[in-house]
């Protein structure tokens, strides 16, 4: 599969989707005005990946901030990985949050209430 490697800007996140090296990461800031435009190709990639996933997928979310429109898209991404779990493969979400940011931890907990995927919470300090 092709590798997606998008460098973040002040309103869009870093995205790495690399099946060969097993790297899956969304980090930085996500507040684009048009989330569909930014995430369209990413969602397509994940759809294709879900058809033939690795036995174990580890997805790192290390977001500093995301707007509510992005929060909907993040749920869409998680739901696609939930399907992979339903198809018998292992997926683990590594949810990183800054020690000062309880809101980011809570956001992760809310997602894990909605989707049936195991979450690991990882605290970091700068």
């Amino acid at each position: 599969m092709e590798v997606i490697n998008i460098k973040g800007t002040d309103d869009t996140p870093n995205v790495i989707l690399d099946k060969a090296s097993g790297q899956f990461e969304l980090s930085g800031r996500s507040l684009p005005e048009d989330v569909n435009q930014f995430y369209g190709s990413i969602l397509d990639w994940i759809d294709a990946y879900a058809a033939d996933p690795l036995d174990r997928t580890e997805f790192n979310f290390k977001l500093e901030y995301f707007n509510t429109a992005s929060s909907k898209i993040i749920l869409d991404i998680l739901l696609k990985f939930e399907e992979i779990v339903e198809n018998g493969k292992e997926v683990i979400i590594k949810w990183h949050y800054h020690e000062d940011e309880e809101d980011m931890l809570e956001a992760g907990e809310e997602y894990s209430d909605i989707v049936e995927i195991p979450f690991d919470y990882i605290v970091y300090t700068d």
């Binding site: 005005e33 048009d34 989330v35 569909n36 509510t68 429109a69 929060s71 909907k72 898209i73 749920l75 909605i114």
Partner: peptide, 14 residues
């Protein structure tokens, strides 16, 4: 967040 869809304007009503 479960029920919403992204509107034409790009909002999720959240």
């Amino acid at each position: 967040i479960k029920e919403s869809t992204i509107s034409d304007k790009g909002g999720a009503g959240l």
